[in-house]
Design a binder for these strands. Sequence first.
RNA 1: GGGCCUGUAGCUUAGCCUGGAUCAAGCGCUUGCCUUCUAAGCAAGAGAACGAGGGUUCAAAUCCCUCCAGGCCCGCCA
Length: 558
Amino acid sequence: MDFKQSIINAVKKEANVEVALEVPPNPDLGDFALPCFQLAKALRKNPAQIAQELAKKLAIKGIARIEAKGPYLNFFVDKGTNAEKVLTAISDDALYGSSGEGKGKHALIEHTSNNPNADIHVGRARNSIIADSVVRLLKFQGYATDVHYFVNDIGKQIAMLVLAANGKKPAYEQLLKLYVDFNAKLKENDDLEQDVFALLKKLEDGDAKVRKQFRGIVDNCIKGQRAILSDVGIEFDSFDYESEYLFNKRTEEVLAALKRTGKLFTDEQQRQVLDLKGFPEVEKGMKNPVLVLTRSDGTSLYPLRDIAYTMDKASWAKGRNILLLGEDQKLYFQQVAAALSLLKVAPPEIVHYAFIVLADGKMSTRSGNVVLFSEFAKEAVERARKEILARTPDMKGKALDALARMIGHGAIKFSIIKVSPDKMITFDWDQALSFEGDSGPYVQYAYARINSILEKHKRKRPKPDYSVLTHEAERNLINHLGRFPDAVSQASKNLEPHVIANYARELAQLFTAFYHSCPVLQAGEDRLVDARLALCIATQSVLKTALGLLGIDTPESM
RNA sequence: GGGCCUGUAGCUUAGCCUGGAUCAAGCGCUUGCCUUCUAAGCAAGAGAACGAGGGUUCAAAUCCCUCCAGGCCCGCCA
């Protein structure tokens, strides 16, 4: 039984009240605390007095000391017992931190689903990076995962690119410029817009040649996006094409099913419209709570195809069904969720993320006012390379490349994941690519330092005497290691990878504090050396796992 | 006009779901620390009316209401 439960049981036995414990704000105040206000009513005494009395009465196995401090009762666990418990748990379990809740279950995650019209920019990459961490978290929890990308391959943007390409096959890197230039032309030339729509119409009518043109542009673009994301370790299992839903029967089936709910009506312009009255979130957010599903000519609109696709995903997902979407899609997705609920299909769990904006305004692919993810990643690696060479001037070749990539990519991922997705980010090169403080490289550095110690000392003692780990820095580090499973559970339950980023940074901080105040190899006594080595090994293991959950590699040295 | 999100130190954030002891970090600033396991580091210090006001509670950054500021969204784009 863990300490927490023992305390709760003991208090219940003594006072007959079910209490909640908390972690004191400051380690000097113990490992667990009981605010006695919650007992005051039942016992009809003042909290400080209750704390005093309980401090005298309670005796709990594994708890070395119980102290009353004002209205709080503080519990100090026996350091040796705690150290042994936490450190053996880590060394015995390669999956320490995983709850195993996903064993035998399946999770489908759709993310990125960027318009296949240009190079991906950092705002969209926020989607990919957060989602990739979610995927890793769920895998770690035991889920079999399937990562999907929905390719919006039949939009106006693609039609524009087909026209702009003019029969040629533009390279991926040229697409953005083509798209931006075409948008500029479009502004001045109304006829061009007619051409765009005419082309789209041909596509929807199933014109084989046009379909092939679209597919050519799209596949080229997806290939490029995929390569860029793959380069930073973000992979997909399947690419689902929206055009499939243009030509298969799924949308008709959805339409028929919605018709049977009695909520579908044809408006005065002959469009098929879904009535969403009775769905409070949608009603509150819209002047007129409806979702338009078809054009006047009966052809499908995006929401209809999306509903059909989302239903397919719901049937593929055997456990959790997760979707990452920009905050601009919040209301829209509530409309889709409402439609799904009419069809008795559970909507996916959604993670919405806010935009990354530039100091001079919103990023816009259309105007070309963007920071491309590819240049962001390139710059990160370049800066990392400079930092490495400033420290180890003789490093070169593949070793240098590999390390620069690890550090550069680590900095990028960490800086994006660590911020709660609700928060809008104003992009700043120096801030996003910081290698110190609250950053990926800082955590990687702690890992590399542990590695350096372990390299120098490979001796292994089967059973260290953990009771010698009594230093404050050791205790703080051990306590934090013990909290890793909670951090993982919270992150995977609420789909909050930033919890892991913050956990990892704190762990690295506590380790570095330990590193500076507790020599390991020069600790003196053998048993202290052995115990501290065991602490290093455990910390390294958790750091590696935590960074792995963020998609960040761990360099052996840096 | 309505809905959702955000507002915590000069700057960037964690903490808010699940209320509890002097609000926790990073950057920047001041002062120390590299002939001892990697200074991408550590230690110490200055710096916060937790957007404003009300309410609930023994207790509010956290829950409720109002207001202010910024972002996003609100019918044949995707």
